[in-house]
Amino acid sequence: MIGVVHYVILSALLFVIGLYGAMTRKNGISVLMSVELMFNAANINFVALSYRFRDVAFLAGQAFPLFVIAIAAAEVTVGLAIVLSLYRSSNTVNLDEANQLRG
C-alpha cells in the first residue's frame, strides 16, 4: 500500500537531486532544469501532505501548487531569456566560462 510517506520520500529525493544538480552542473540550462525539479518536489509535498488534513487546510495544500506552477513558468521564462542574452553577448552558456566578475 502506497501512503503519504512514500510520496514525501519521493519528493525529498527529487529535491536533493535537484539541489545537487543546481550546485554541480556547469551548463546554465541544466541548472534551470534542476531548479525545476526542486519546485516540483515541493509541489508533490503539498499535494501528498494535504491528504493529512481536512476542509480548508486540505484545500490550501491543493491550491498552493497551482500558484507555484504559474510562478515556475514565469521563472523559467526569465531564466531562459537571461541565458540567451548571455549566449548572445559572450557565446557561451557554460557557467565556468562566464567568469569575468571575480575579485
Binding site: 515541493a42 526569465v78 531564466g79 541565458v83 557557467l95 562566464a98 566578475l101
Partner: peptide
C-alpha cells in the same frame, strides 16, 4: 548578463528552498 545569470540562478535556488 553574467551578473543577471548569477543572480537568477542563486535566486531560483533560493525560491525553491
Amino acid at each position: 548578463s553574467e551578473a543577471g545569470l548569477k543572480y537568477f540562478l542563486m535566486g531560483a535556488v533560493t525560491s525553491a528552498l
